[in-house]
């Protein structure tokens, strides 16, 4: 059921729940909001049907069930897999789609609402993921192969890909500027409002009236963190950002990392890899020229070049297109 947000943006923001989180679309033209929300809905349904690990009837579930053999896949799943493998390569294997079995071993093998109350099993022994290089992919024949016993999890990239796709589609179809945010992974396309699309930065994407905000004119902004998806596993508290080298939750160093990049997919891969990387992440992000804000578990904040200094809290200005 769509919700309305604060009075300054009710005409231009559509908000609903999807993919276990909040989906939002902001458009620069009031008249485009309904059509934009319908296009977003189509994209959400498509990505869920293709890439959900928790739906038995999803194409990804069928691919995982056929591990050890070659499987013909749709163009949509092929694209999602290509993007996941590209991001694995770009992050040196830190954001790896072959962590599906590791997620299952941690009890995250169903919708998160069912995991949240806790899982009655012990923390498993470390076991490295098979690794993204073990996935074979033939784009000409649309054929994919994953090793026997392996399982693909597209949770790290599919949502951001859906945001990129939805923003591009809405702009191309309707001609307006648009921001699509799926659980805080935001992509923009088309003409931006004066000052850009403003995005609040907080520990959780459900925070309203975040005290810090930045704006982007192009590309994407994404945040990864351990503040929401954590649960009790036996006597341990675990979270969902898994280090492929161990198959276990990464050692917490950052609480939340937010980054901007040329696409939402890239921003998301950067922020997730930074979470796993720990203290080295600042230099790594700097090396690629990615603006980022990193919050340590003790609450102290680090920034990379290009991330603006926070402004004081002010009322949201009326948006106008450029």
């Amino acid at each position: 059921m769509p919700e309305r947000s604060n009075p300054t943006d009710t005409q231009r923001v559509y908000r609903t729940r999807a993919l276990g989180t909040i989906a939002e679309v902001v458009v620069t033209e009031r008249g485009a909001l309904v059509a934009a929300s319908e296009l977003l809905q189509l994209e959400l349904e498509r990505i869920d049907r293709v890439a959900s690990r928790f739906r038995d009837d999803s194409e990804l579930s069928r691919l995982n069930a056929a591990a050890g053999t070659e499987t013909q896949v749709s163009g949509d799943l092929l694209e999602a897999l290509q993007v996941a493998l590209a991001m694995a390569e770009a992050t040196g294997g830190l954001v790896d789609p072959t962590v599906g079995v590791a997620m299952d071993r941690l009890g995250y093998d169903r919708d998160f609402s069912e995991v949240l109350p806790g899982v009655d099993r012990q923390l498993p022994e470390p076991q490295a993921a098979p690794g993204w290089r073990s996935v074979t992919l033939d784009p000409e024949r649309s054929v994919v192969g994953i090793p026997t016993g392996a399982s693909i999890d597209l949770g790290a990239t599919a949502k951001a890909l859906a945001a990129d796709r939805a923003a591009t589609t809405i702009h191309h179809r309707l001609g307006c500027g648009v921001l699509v945010s799926l659980g805080g992974d935001a992509a923009v396309a088309g003409p931006a409002p004066d000052g850009g699309f403003a995005i609040g930065i907080a520990d959780t994407c459900t925070t309203r009236n975040a005290s810090e905000a930045v704006s982007i004119l192009s590309g994407g902004l994404a945040s990864s963190g351990i503040g929401v998806r954590q649960w009790r596993l036996g006597t341990h508290q675990v979270h969902h950002i898994v280090d492929p080298a161990t198959g276990l939750p990464s050692t917490p160093y950052w609480r939340t990392v937010s980054a901007t990049a040329a696409t939402c997919v890239q921003a998301n891969a950067a922020s997730t890899a930074a979470m796993i990387m720990g203290a080295r992440a600042v230099a790594w992000l700097e090396g690629m020229g990615l603006p980022a804000r990193l919050v340590r578990v003790d609450g102290s904040v680090a920034y990379t070049s290009g991330w603006p200094a926070p402004e004081s809290t002010q009322p949201v200005p009326e948006m106008s297109t450029r």
């Binding site: 947000s5 604060n6 300054t8 943006d9 231009r12 923001v13 939002e24 902001v26 921001l179 945010s181 805080g184 992974d185 935001a186 000052g195 850009g196 403003a198 995005i199 609040g200 930065i201 907080a202 520990d203 959780t204 994407c205 459900t206 925070t207 309203r208 009236n209 975040a210 005290s211 810090e212 905000a213 930045v214 704006s215 982007i216 004119l217 192009s218 590309g219 994407g220 902004l221 945040s223 963190g225 939340t256 937010s258 901007t260 990049a261 040329a262 690629m288 603006p291 290009g306 991330w307 603006p308 200094a309 926070p310 402004e311 004081s312 809290t313 002010q314 009322p315 949201v316 200005p317």
Partner: peptide
């Protein structure tokens, strides 16, 4: 990196990333 600069913006904003 994005092709345009990430800029500061007045808070609050219509959407939140986290």
């Amino acid at each position: 990196p994005p092709s345009t600069a990430t800029q500061s913006a007045p808070a609050p904003a219509p959407v939140t990333s986290g």
